[in-house]
Simulated assay, not measured.
Amino acid sequence: MSDRARCIRAWGDRRARVLMIAVLLAAACASLFIWQRPWIAGLCLLGAAIGTYGYFEFRCPRCRERFMSFSRDAVRFDRTSCQSCGLPKNASPLGADCSR
Results as ranks from 00 to 15, higher is better:
M1H: 05
M1T: 00
M1K: 02
S2E: 05
S2F: 01
D3A: 04
D3R: 00
D3H: 00
D3K: 00
R4K: 06
A5R: 04
A5W: 01
R6T: 02
C7Y: 02
C7S: 10
I8Q: 12
R9H: 11
W11V: 06
G12Y: 03
R14D: 15
A16T: 06
A16P: 04
R17L: 15
L19Q: 11
M20W: 05
A22D: 14
L25Q: 13
A26Q: 08
A28R: 02
A30V: 09
S31L: 10
F33V: 11
F33N: 12
I34D: 15
W35R: 12
W35F: 15
R37S: 12
R37T: 07
W39V: 10
W39H: 14
I40Y: 09
C44G: 05
C44D: 08
G47R: 00
G47T: 00
A49L: 14
I50K: 04
G51H: 02
T52E: 08
T52A: 10
T52V: 02
G54D: 08
Y55C: 11
F56D: 10
F56A: 07
F56H: 08
E57I: 00
E57A: 07
F58D: 09
R59T: 09
C60F: 08
R62T: 05
C63A: 08
C63N: 09
C63W: 11
C63T: 06
R64W: 13
E65A: 14
R66S: 06
R66V: 01
R66P: 03
F67Q: 09
M68G: 06
S69T: 02
S69P: 11
V75D: 04
V75P: 02
R76Y: 12
R79T: 08
R79V: 11
T80Y: 03
T80P: 05
S81Q: 13
C85F: 14
G86L: 12
L87A: 11
P88G: 06
P88W: 00
P88D: 03
N90R: 01
N90W: 07
A91Y: 06
A91T: 03
S92W: 01
S92Y: 01
P93F: 01
P93W: 02
L94A: 12
D97P: 13
D97I: 00
S99E: 06
